[in-house]
Simulated scan of single mutants.
Amino acid sequence: MTTYVALLRAVNVGGTGKLPMSELRAMCESLGFAKVRTYIASGNVVFESKLSETSVKSRLERCLETSTGLQVGVLIRTGVELAAVLADNPFRSAAPNRTVAIFLDAPPPTDTLAGVSGQQTEEIALGKREIYVHYGNGMAESKLKIRAAKAGTARNMNTVAKLAEWAAA
C-alpha cells in the first residue's frame, strides 16, 4: 500500500467549491482508500491505496464530479514525494505561513519565470512538480500572477509539513 496525499483545487476557498470534509472522507472510503484522514477544510486528504497515482487521481476526480457536480482538479503526491517538497523548500528560513508550494501535475515549464507578472517582493523558485513562492509582505496585497500555476493548487508550508507528518505516520 502506498500512502498518498490528495490536494483538491479550489475547494472551500473564497466561497467556491463547497465540500464538507466528511463527504470527502466518505468518497475516498467508497473508492476503497484506507486510513483516510482530512486536514483543514481546504481539500487535503491523506490515505493509503494499492492503486497507481494516475488511477487514484482519475478515480477521485470522477467521484467528485459524480457526487458534487463539480469538476475539481486533484493533485496527488506520495508521502515520500510530499516529504521531499518540504525538504526541497528553498525558502526554509522564511515564515512558513508566507511560503507556499504550488503543486502541479508535471514539472514547471522552462519558461515559467518569464510568464510571471505583478511580482514585487515575492521570491519564486522552481521545484520538481512545484513552484515555490515566498510572499515577503504576505499574500493579501500581492498582485503576483504565475501563468504556469493556473492548473495547480497552493499550500503553505505549515500545511505541507502537517500533511507530510501524517503521511509518514
Rank of each mutant, 00 (worst) to 15 (best):
A83K: 10
A83M: 01
A84C: 08
A84L: 15
V85E: 04
V85H: 09
L86I: 02
L86K: 15
A87N: 11
D88T: 12
D88N: 15
D88I: 08
N89S: 08
N89A: 06
N89C: 14
N89V: 05
P90F: 08
P90D: 09
F91K: 05
F91R: 05
F91S: 01
R92H: 14
R92V: 11
R92P: 01
R92G: 06
R92E: 12
A94P: 01
A94N: 11
A95R: 11
A95Q: 11
A95N: 14
N97P: 00
N97H: 15
T99L: 05
T99G: 01
T99A: 07
V100H: 01
V100A: 02
V100S: 03
V100Y: 04
A101R: 00
A101K: 01
A101I: 03
I102E: 02
L104T: 04
L104Y: 02
L104D: 00
A106G: 04
P107G: 10
P108S: 09
T110D: 13
D111P: 01
D111H: 05
L113Y: 11
A114N: 12
A114V: 03
A114F: 04
G115H: 11
G115A: 08
V116R: 03
S117R: 15
S117F: 09
Q119R: 13
Q119V: 10
Q119I: 14
Q119K: 14
Q120V: 07
Q120Y: 04
T121D: 15
T121C: 08
E122Y: 08
E122H: 05
E123H: 10
I124S: 08
I124Y: 04
I124M: 07
I124Q: 07
A125G: 11
A125E: 13
L126W: 06
L126I: 11
L126C: 12
G127F: 12
G127M: 06
K128V: 10
K128Q: 14
E130F: 06
E130H: 10
Y132D: 03
Y132M: 06
Y132R: 05
H134R: 12
H134P: 00
Y135K: 00
G136Q: 09
G136R: 08
G136M: 02
G136T: 03
G136V: 07
N137A: 15
N137R: 15
N137P: 00
G138M: 09
M139W: 07
M139Y: 08
A140M: 14
E141I: 13
E141A: 15
S142N: 02
K143S: 13
K143A: 10
K143W: 00
